[in-house]
Design a protein around this nucleic acid. Structure first.
Lengths: 126, 126
DNA sequence: GCAAAAATAATAATCATTATCACTTTTATG
DNA sequence: CATAAAAGTGATAATGATTATTATTTTTGC
């Protein structure tokens, strides 16, 4: 990977955002700083960064795709109302990969664990 | 929900398939029996059945959407080579919802837990 | 400095899914 | 049984997210 201003900005934008933004959200945020930025560039770089394990791709339950700069083991909670993505610490269920191996013989390389419900913020306004 | 031949066939097709097919796969399978069946009808019915909790929608890690007739608590293992979806029994990690609640205060209504790796069948042909 | 490799912006193309709509089937009721 | 309202269907157009293409620009090792 060669250096590029665009990639640096895209990564910075993701890292500054706690909300696990989508490609489109990153596009709009980053364009404030670099109006010439192209949507295709955002997609290209996010996928590239994910392939190189610099960031992580999250497939949400509603089919939307979010990105996460946090590479440590953890899970996600996705609000069914506002679609925000929250982090759930790994110690809720550590060592799942080993348990799957023991039970099924299947070797887990990666996992995507998301819980679904209404977040505390949205519950307030019910 | 009123009765319809099409919905009955779509459900039967899903139940007879162990492989957690996609909408398109169900479309092609069911058309063998009812060639006039429309793709839109398949999508409409699968979503309707999922909303009514007769079947379950699975969002795979690669973004593809599969359907599952098994409503019991269980997880999935998705092969990164052949994209088949396997079942992993719930007792690998029971009571996750309660653990999330205890740790984060977030109320889990549903979850989507998929593990990723290469299945035993694909490993044979490496 | 300069050529090769990689990246970009803009936009066209793709692909899964959903919306629309004229028509048909189901079903409750008299 | 007749019938009308509600729900469902098939065909296809529309949508929306993502990817491919391409001419041009940047980066980087020598």
């Amino acid at each position: 990977m060669k250096y590029s201003k665009q990639r640096e900005l895209i990564l910075k934008t993701l890292q500054e955002n706690v909300i696990h933004p989508t490609a489109d959200e990153i596009y709009h945020l980053a364009r404030k700083e670099m109006p010439s930025l192209s949507l295709a560039t955002v997609y290209r770089n996010l996928n590239q960064l994910a392939e190189n394990h610099v960031i992580r791709k999250i497939e949400s339950l509603d089919g939307s795709v979010h990105f996460d700069h946090n590479l440590c083991n953890h899970y996600h909670f996705i609000c069914t109302k506002c679609h925000k993505v929250y982090d759930v610490p790994y110690d809720v269920a550590p060592d799942l990969a080993n348990k799957v191996l023991a039970k099924t013989g299947l070797w887990v390389e990666n996992f995507d664990i998301s819980f679904k419900g209404i977040c505390q913020n949205c519950k307030k306004f019910n």
